[in-house]
């Protein structure tokens, strides 16, 4: 077992371009997540938010620029290697495998650090999963699938986490629950990069916000400036 994941590493992205075939989706993104920070990326549908997360995870074939996790350059490395460096994610669709049970989904990724939370700790955080261990993963409700995806990510012991729209399509009660969990993760020193469309929900949690539009960062602000910047953020997001 390696402990590469123990330290919560920051992410530094510079001049990131990403393509799907001919279509140029990210057009020079600069973005920084300091260790222990929670940073949110906002943006309309199709702005390139998921593409940004996938680029970091090594899932976009045509990419250029720089992506650093701590002092390691990630760009060009195979996805599995990137994940084993202590970077874990929750995809927009949650990434639950239909042919696997809840337990199998949960235990799918390798454990990366000796101080990774054990299952008892995870079930304390996500009690709904415990009784459903043998059900097929996709038999869970949307909220439960999100919990499973979060638990799976945490179980690896990764300390730098990427979440793609964790509240999308969920009931307000669940959204609040996820907010509490994320706040708790932040307090425990995790580094988090979230994609989110729900400004009201994410603003109180985040240290820094970026707005992505047509593959570029068009606005950003630190948490202490939220109040003053709110009108311009809202304008950018078309809310």
């Amino acid at each position: 077992m390696t402990d590469r994941a123990r330290a919560s590493s920051g992410l530094e992205i510079q001049g990131l371009h990403a393509f799907y075939g001919q279509s140029h989706v990210l057009r020079g993104v600069d973005l920084s997540v300091k260790p222990g920070q929670l940073v949110a990326i906002l943006g309309r549908n199709g702005a390139g938010k998921s593409t940004l997360i996938k680029s970091i995870m090594g899932l976009i074939k045509k990419c250029s620029g720089q992506i650093r996790l701590g002092d390691v350059d990630l760009l060009g490395r195979p996805a599995d290697q990137i994940a084993r460096m202590g970077l874990a994610w929750v995809p927009e669709d949650r990434g639950i495998f239909a042919s696997l049970t809840v337990a199998e989904n949960l235990r799918l990724p390798p454990i990366l650090a000796s101080d990774a939370p054990d299952e008892a700790a995870l079930f304390a955080l996500f009690p709904a999963l415990h009784e459903r261990l043998n059900t097929p993963g996709t038999r869970l409700s949307g909220g439960e699938q999100q919990m499973l995806a979060l638990a799976r990510m945490l179980r690896t012991g990764a300390r730098t986490l990427l979440l793609d729209e964790p509240t999308e399509g969920l009931a307000p009660l669940i959204v609040a629950q996820i907010g509490e969990i994320i706040a708790q993760l932040k307090r425990s020193g995790y580094t988090l990069l979230l994609v989110e469309q729900n400004l009201q929900w994410i603003a109180p949690l985040a240290d820094h916000l970026y707005v992505l539009e047509q593959g570029r960062i068009v606005d950003e602000c630190a948490s202490e400036d939220f109040e003053g910047r709110l009108p311009s953020l809202i304008a950018h997001l078309g809310l």
Binding site: G58, L59, A79, A83, R84, G95, F97, L108, P109, P110
Partner: peptide, 12 residues
């Protein structure tokens, strides 16, 4: 079998 690329992004 279900989604190889996804699986690799979980460290496999």
């Amino acid at each position: 079998t279900e989604n190889a690329e996804r699986l690799s992004s979980f460290g496999i």
